[in-house]
């Protein structure tokens, strides 16, 4: 992805609204005008835990419009539960926006976005932007069950065509969302995906089989979130434009280099990932 040169900083934001979209899935609205203005589709923030008792949490920026930005996250551990405790009026400090988002510059006629589970949190801005640019956008959205297909209506309202899948068959296709990508007769001009690693690998494999490349937004445990610690890496072809500059001999004969998901990513081209 092209490097985004954006105005990143620490933002002191105020929670404006909070809703539980499904059991354990929180949408947190924030008054964050500067963050909303600076954010590009596919970027994320590091949310600083209010009690300071845990590491910051990387969260995709769900919405960014006017004075409001929002975060959509699942309550999966101590850190997200702490954020889930926040109520309107509470303060939340964030660093961001961070990372290189999706490359939407090709002005595609037809785009498919594949989202799995909490991956939905990182694709709304891309969907909105593509629709605004006149692109036909299909969202393939998979989750464990119907209740966890959160906010699908929002994408329909934004002008996306929806296809759903659930692991238990409670809504849409009974099985993996990637099956809906695989069975297509034609591939779109642009494929974006965000979700669990097995889903992203499958999207990458399907894209490769059909001779196209996908943009995959990766998730990994972060420590610093800003490129300082080299903890959140993924093996990347050293020929990739996103590969950090390293001398050839560091590869020990292989053509792979570890790139930072937080800095060089989180979005990578599927054909450059060597995972």
């Amino acid at each position: 992805m092209p490097t985004i040169d954006c105005d990143s900083r620490v933002h002191e934001t105020r929670v404006t609204d909070r809703s539980e979209l499904a059991p354990g899935v929180i949408l947190l609205g924030l008054n964050a005008p500067e963050l909303a203005r600076a954010t590009r589709a596919g970027q994320y923030v590091m949310a600083i835990p209010p009690t300071g008792e845990a590491a910051a949490t990387a969260l995709g920026i769900y919405e960014a419009q006017g004075e409001r930005a929002s975060l959509l996250f699942f309550l999966t551990g101590k850190r997200t539960r702490e954020l889930g405790e926040l109520r309107p009026g509470d303060m939340l400090a964030l660093t961001g926006p961070l990372g290189n988002g999706f490359d939407l510059s090709s002005k595609p006629r037809h785009a498919v976005i594949v989202a799995g589970g909490v991956g939905i949190a990182s694709v709304l801005l891309a969907a909105q932007r593509l629709v605004a640019d006149g692109t036909r956008v299909e969202l393939l959205y998979g989750a464990r069950n119907e209740a966890l297909l959160v906010d699908a209506q929002r994408f329909a309202e934004a002008g996306c065509e929806l296809a759903l899948a659930t692991d238990d068959g409670s809504a849409g296709h009974h099985g993996l969302i990637t099956a809906l990508l695989e069975r297509r007769s034609e591939m779109p001009d642009l494929i974006l995906a965000c979700g669990p690693s097995p889903m992203l690998r499958a999207v990458g494999r399907i894209a490769a089989d059909r001779g196209v490349r996908a943009q995959l937004s990766l998730e990994e445990t972060f420590a610093c979130g800003v490129g300082g610690c080299w903890g959140c890496v993924v093996p990347l072809a050293r020929t990739s434009a996103q590969a950090p500059g390293f001398p050839l001999e560091s590869q020990g004969g292989s053509d792979v280099v570890y790139a930072r998901i937080c800095k060089e990513g989180p979005v990578f081209f599927s054909d450059e990932l060597k995972w």
């Binding site: 008792e53 959140c232 890496v233 560091s250 590869q251 792979v256």
Partner: peptide, 19 residues
């Protein structure tokens, strides 16, 4: 030059970080 360790490289643990 060093390629570094295979992934995962980080684990959050109670009151700590294992790297």
């Amino acid at each position: 030059p060093r390629l570094g360790n295979p992934t995962p490289r980080l684990v959050h643990t109670p009151a700590g970080l294992l790297n």
